[in-house]
Amino acid sequence: MSYSTKSPWIIHYDGSSCNGCDIEVLACLTPMYDLERFGIVNTGNPKHADILLITGSINEQNRDVVKQIYEQMPEPKVVVAIGICATSGGVFKKCYNILGGVDKVIPVDIYVPGCAARPEAIIDGVVKALRILEEKSKALHNKGGKVQ
């Protein structure tokens, strides 16, 4: 079981970030940092994903989109908020269209601060997320639920 939980598939959604964290998430998957060598694949389908990476804060229009993606993901699932905007709203906190961090809409497990969050920090966040994913999967197993 452990080998399957340690190569999670991630889905990335850009809330309302400035793109800085987005390209750092993508940079994690490209040759310099190369997360893909661990079998971590960036998928576009929420039903395939274990870890949801969200950059940027929540606004009126993307609130439902984020909720929808989260609800479509199968259990167990982990949410990683990347960048200070996803954590609390950051520099845009006082903007009229910003509701705040991602945790206003969906439960967040790991926060990766930084503007923009560095690839090393993002990778660290994903590694921490793996542990939580495993715990959640165990808890689900004990409850007699299906382990995905």
Partner: peptide, 14 residues
């Protein structure tokens, strides 16, 4: 569009 709108220009008042 509007999924990424933050209202950055208004921050000039703060």
């Amino acid at each position: 569009i509007g999924y990424v709108h933050r209202g950055l220009e208004k921050l000039v008042e703060q």
